[in-house]
Amino acid sequence: MYRFDKTRLDLAREFKANPYGAHSPDLQYLLHLMRRPSPDRPFHCLVVDKDDERWTLAVMEPGTRRPPTLTNHVFTDLAEAEWFVFKLRWRELAGEDLPID
């Protein structure tokens, strides 16, 4: 069974360099772990501020009929948003911040 390994900073670097597109098998495993749906765990999404130009990070409840709750984090680049959320999830798994900006 694949397990999270907080020493695998190479996977974080790989994701930062290329959040979309083909990934190494280990990075793909890690992303599956981070994106595993749960009926009781809120998840992040992006709310469009301006079509194809600006987005605000938000949090949704699974299965909810309520709109997402907006955060204060605004992005003009989707890849930056992906990296930001990746770091949040890494911290959740590792119990500590990812030592890469």
């Binding site: 992303l31 998840f43 709310v47 949704m60 699974p62 299965g63 309520r66």
Partner: peptide, 23 residues
């Protein structure tokens, strides 16, 4: 749910008109 992000490989995005559907 996160299942959308899982199979799409990117963060879910929605806008104000999408939110009408939730409200």
């Amino acid at each position: 749910s996160l299942a959308t992000e899982l199979y799409q490989g990117r963060l879910l995005t929605l806008d104000r008109i999408d939110m009408l559907l939730l409200e």
